[in-house]
Design a protein around this nucleic acid. Sequence first.
RNA 1: GGGCGCGUAGCUCAAUGGCAGAGCAGCGGCCUUUUAAGCCGUUUGUUGAGGGUUCGAGCCCCUCCGCGCUCACCA
Length: 510
Amino acid sequence: MTDYNQLEKIRLQKIEELRAEGLEPYPTRAERTHTSRQAIAALDAVGDEGIEVRATLAGRIRATRPMGKLTFTHIEDGDGKIQLFLRVNELGQEKVDFFNKMYDLGDFVQASGVMMRTRTGEPTLQVHDFKMLSKAVSPLPAAKDETLEDGTVLRHAALEDPELRARQRYADLAVNPNVRETFRKRAAITKAIRTFLDDNGFLEVETPILQPLYGGAAARPFVTHHNELDQDMYLRISFELYLKRLLVGNLERVYEIGRDFRNEGVSFKHNPEFTQLEFYCAYADYLKVMELTENMIGYVCDTVFGTRQFAFDKDDSTHYDLDFSTPWRRVEMRQGILETSGIDIANYPTAEALFQAIIAKYPNKNPDPHAARGKLIDFLLGEFLEPTLIQPTFLYDYPRDISPLAKSKPGDALTVERFEGYAAGFELCNAFTELNDPLDQEQRFLDMGRDYTDDEEEKHPLDEDYLRAMRYGMPPNGGFGMGMERLAMLLTNNRSIREVLLFPALRKEE
RNA sequence: GGGCGCGUAGCUCAAUGGCAGAGCAGCGGCCUUUUAAGCCGUUUGUUGAGGGUUCGAGCCCCUCCGCGCUCACCA
């Protein structure tokens, strides 16, 4: 049984009173002739000619100022806010009093009348008739906007608690227009990515989310069970192995935008489910993919935001001005690590030697003594290099042993043709010249299995069907993956992934 | 999983171990161009949950729950 608070009980009472007067608080149909923006535009269009602009508006009451014989109310619709003006002259005292008594913040209303301007010039609907469209039982978290002299809007008592905002995203969206704007931008970003890839000859495809084997990344999967098949299934951790099967099938350029699931920790940049973009491009290598990437991001910047300059506040005291102009800076990993840590990984071809070099130079750091060489390089990368990668940068040429699906650099057995895109100090995307040699691939799977026998969590399952596909012949190709939330964070200046997820993962209530 | 921090009214926040408060929202009243409208009056609490110390706990201690930051993890 719902436990209503005092404010809600009052509103429930009003619902009964409305019904008692023969007025339906939740009518089936609504009419609207103009959105707020359309009504204002119509008023602007007639100018001073004295032509009457009649309009019926619909929206949600966000502020109301009753003054006895007058009431000013702001309603908000999908286009913005507009003021309603109720006056005894048109409506009579009884109707004005009725409105003031029965209509609350948060209610959806419909109002008809004539557009006018108030003494301050604000476009306003002078109301001749009004109707409840949906009575709100629970009051929305109060949020009042104050427009300061310089035009900036100051918000008072807005819903701010991050947990409440995420749990009750509907309320967050209802009272915080900037949150709505973030998700509109996120949608526009996704749409621009699709347009860019479609225009570049890529085919959008969909591959299985429920998979009998998982692969394509190193992450713990979610496990579920198919009853009829009596078989465990995994929620995918990446699309990679399925998309590359399609290249075997002569689809030269494919991409997928969809959900990945990784059964791991939650942080400001990790959510257990997130939206991934992956594309694979036959006859491209990682250099070609770098160009595609910076052009694709540039296209998104231009079409959605009209600029390539972005402010990003990493935390309260760290502000970055990011520039997504092409070409992005390119840093070779070995060189970057050398410059930021003073250690040349090329001088230490084994894990043991590299480990000794790190602790000799940095006795305060704690690299894992049992880590593989690639893991140690990754440690150096995270400790020293990554924090310096503020402007959009491609970091390229990665250690082979942490990149089992990437092709080796010709003449360098320890290095693969792989790059990651960085901005604001965190990883944005990951790409490589894809390994298409079935014999090499099989050996890499076996090596991974051997290297991680102690560590069940990171063991790569060997995907026989993927190898079978590759044996039919896979064209040389470049592949790319990017977390869409990461991109949305960067371009909308949100420091937490939760701000760009409508419903981020939360512990269940109670 | 480890460390640090937070949790008080519908919302935003106060309260030295000593009567649980303010603004907004709500309710009653005044007000014919307001816009955080204003003015007068007024209501609202399992202080996240449970236990302990104390004459007395929102505050101190323990356990649990939730969230935030951070580390680990995330090739």
